[in-house]
Amino acid sequence: MNAAIAIQLGQAVLVVLLAPLFAGWVNQCRAWLQNRRGPGMLQPYRVLRKLFHKDAVLAHRASFLFRATPYIRFGCMVLAAYIIPTLASGLPISPAADVIALVGIFALGRVFMALAAMDIGTAFGTMGARREMLVAFLAEPALLMVFFTPALISQSTSLSTIVHTLAYQPFVIHPGLAFAAIAFLMVLLAENARLPIDNPATHLELTMIHEALVLEYSARHLALMDWASNLKLLAYATMGLALFAPWGIARTIDGPSLWLALACLPVKLAVAGAALALLETLSAKLRIFRAPEFLAMAFLLAVLGLLTHVLLEGAA
């Protein structure tokens, strides 16, 4: 039991510390693909360090909500890091939240971020909040629907059980998962403010969503917000790996399987990050009103995955 708790803590700490590195890796890959040299993979750490050392500037009208939000959002993402089986499944805290609760935890962070953006009462803040919620109200159901296909396959909504079923049962091809994987990728891009929906590199106000939301934040608050965003990206990546490439995640808590998991994780994340960068480089930003269409397609694809599963495997 103690070992399990130690691994649980270790997994969370590892994810929290790795998150900026993963974001740095994606950015570095993007730079390489665009024939730039890039700032290096450690740049997010430097940014965080710089931000933490600065004095915070708050708008006059900022309320308690504005100051509490960075901590709450960071807390949500750390909690997600506890629950998602990154290294090992079946850890002590993982039964506290299944995939539906996980979506709820992400929603909690998002609602607070949108409210904080409206708190100051600037045009950009409210516009960002509106756009964020616009993306979210479609992305959230899409994500739930994505989860439902593996949930039906493994007869469980617990991520640990899903990983067990997909990785350690005799290998079966689940066509429904193909649909779900594409939908998940679309949701990942939308939810993490990546390219077809939002451009993480831009500071041009009219095209941005995420940057408009955090425009008023500075110093340690901004650092926490950025770190939380990095964590969210990594959380989505590890969720995707758990659902669609669960091989290597330790099932039992013993030395060899944990070392295997520790060896698999960087490889899988490196590949996933590079693929993400490639995908972003290949796509162009959509107009804001194409975004709901993009997400509606993700939603319908996920539903279709569910249907395909019911059609092909449900009857059997």
Binding site: P175, G176, A178, F179, M297, L304, T308
Partner: peptide, 23 residues
């Protein structure tokens, strides 16, 4: 059984492409 699974996979790919065409 593997053959059936593969055929099912191709069938759903077909469906996926049909939807992609629609979109």
């Amino acid at each position: 059984s593997l053959a059936t699974q593969l055929v099912n996979l191709f069938a759903s790919l077909l469906l996926l492409i049909a939807f992609a065409m629609l979109a």
